[in-house]
Design a protein around this nucleic acid. Sequence first.
DNA 1: ATCTTTGTTCGTAATATTACGAATGATAAT
DNA 2: ATTATCATTCGTAATATTACGAACAAAGAT
Lengths: 101, 101
Amino acid sequence: MIMAEETVFTEKQQKAARYAKAMGHPVRMYVLELLSNQSCCYSGNLSDELPIAKSTLSQHLKELKDAGLIQGEIEAPRVKYCINRANWKEAQLLFKEFLKI
Amino acid sequence: MIMAEETVFTEKQQKAARYAKAMGHPVRMYVLELLSNQSCCYSGNLSDELPIAKSTLSQHLKELKDAGLIQGEIEAPRVKYCINRANWKEAQLLFKEFLKI
DNA sequence: ATCTTTGTTCGTAATATTACGAATGATAAT
DNA sequence: ATTATCATTCGTAATATTACGAACAAAGAT
């Protein structure tokens, strides 16, 4: 996005858009739904369930991480992924406000 | 997306992802917020407020229309855009469920 | 020390997104 | 009929996304 420094957009709009973008793919929706329901999971579990290459899954997980919605901690040789509770809560609030629900 | 015919994803996940994707840009977030608050608006109003070319705005509006979140009716020579109430409600429900709020 | 397991990163390709200005279309006003 | 207004579509370019398999990295098990 180029768009002038002093944007017209509120901080909230930009944050909500960022989260929405991260949610904007079935694979990432699937992961988020799973992780928000149970505590955590291993990348391998997801890989077994999803019809995509491991490397592709890694990319999606990275996007969710970059957006701040999940976090991964190494539990060698595996990686345990969990929801990032703080940001998840923020996303909940933002969408609650935005959607007025 | 290629991914096998019989996807692992639920209808809800796919729909929610579709809506989320449409919301995943500040301009579109801005438009949605405006339209969900007031009844309707004209493309020109948006164009005045937003730091993007008219043609770019048109593209964003088309995306929101294609996702089903807004609808435009011609009121020549202008176009009046409104929220698509039915689908907006569906999106509210989907996100409510997804985010558990 | 080597092998195994697990995930990420790299290299690559196809497609989608975002953006602009110019051209076009559609209708109202003159 | 011509002109003015408003918005979309077209043509184009730069960048991002999505996907794959191969190569690599990290750490536990043998």
